[in-house]
Amino acid sequence: MYKVVVLVIRKEGTTRDEFLRSWRSEHPRFVEQMPGILRYRQSPAIQHKSVWPFDGMAELWFASLGDIAAAFKGPEAKALFDHEEHFIGDLKWFVAEEFEVPLKERT
């Protein structure tokens, strides 16, 4: 299983509430249209006294690297990217394999 990990910075001039409304309420309908996507998770940064370098993280799971390439080449990706221009200022991303690391039982 592979996933695309995206670190998101909201668009300048967009409030946190505006950003979250667009990302959490509107954006999932664009993501779910992408072919081959298996799972989608959003992790908005909590409000904190410190200023975080990112406003959130998204994870998109796919069965193969080929599925990722196909998903991001199609018209569904264009619609997704067009929507992102309304509320995302910048993003950093990478493709990863996920490995569960068992933790020792605590006593």
Results as ranks from 00 to 15, higher is better:
residue 2 Y to E: 04
residue 8 V to T: 03
residue 8 V to G: 00
residue 10 R to H: 07
residue 12 E to D: 12
residue 16 R to V: 11
residue 18 E to N: 11
residue 18 E to P: 06
residue 23 W to A: 01
residue 24 R to P: 00
residue 25 S to P: 00
residue 26 E to H: 05
residue 30 F to N: 06
residue 30 F to V: 04
residue 30 F to G: 04
residue 30 F to L: 14
residue 33 Q to D: 13
residue 33 Q to P: 03
residue 35 P to K: 12
residue 35 P to I: 10
residue 37 I to M: 13
residue 38 L to F: 00
residue 39 R to A: 14
residue 40 Y to P: 00
residue 41 R to C: 03
residue 42 Q to K: 03
residue 44 P to W: 03
residue 44 P to I: 01
residue 45 A to Y: 02
residue 47 Q to P: 06
residue 47 Q to N: 10
residue 48 H to K: 05
residue 48 H to L: 09
residue 49 K to A: 10
residue 50 S to W: 09
residue 51 V to F: 03
residue 52 W to S: 13
residue 53 P to V: 13
residue 53 P to K: 11
residue 56 G to N: 05
residue 57 M to Q: 08
residue 57 M to W: 01
residue 58 A to E: 10
residue 62 F to E: 02
residue 62 F to T: 00
residue 64 S to K: 07
residue 65 L to Y: 04
residue 66 G to F: 01
residue 66 G to D: 15
residue 67 D to S: 14
residue 68 I to W: 02
residue 69 A to K: 15
residue 71 A to W: 03
residue 76 E to S: 12
residue 76 E to H: 12
residue 77 A to M: 08
residue 78 K to F: 05
residue 78 K to M: 07
residue 80 L to V: 09
residue 80 L to F: 14
residue 81 F to W: 09
residue 81 F to H: 11
residue 83 H to D: 15
residue 83 H to R: 05
residue 85 E to S: 14
residue 89 G to P: 08
residue 89 G to F: 10
residue 93 W to L: 12
residue 94 F to M: 06
residue 94 F to I: 11
residue 95 V to I: 15
residue 96 A to T: 15
residue 96 A to W: 02
residue 98 E to A: 10
residue 99 F to N: 04
residue 100 E to G: 06
residue 101 V to I: 15
residue 101 V to R: 03
residue 105 E to W: 02
residue 105 E to P: 02
residue 106 R to T: 11
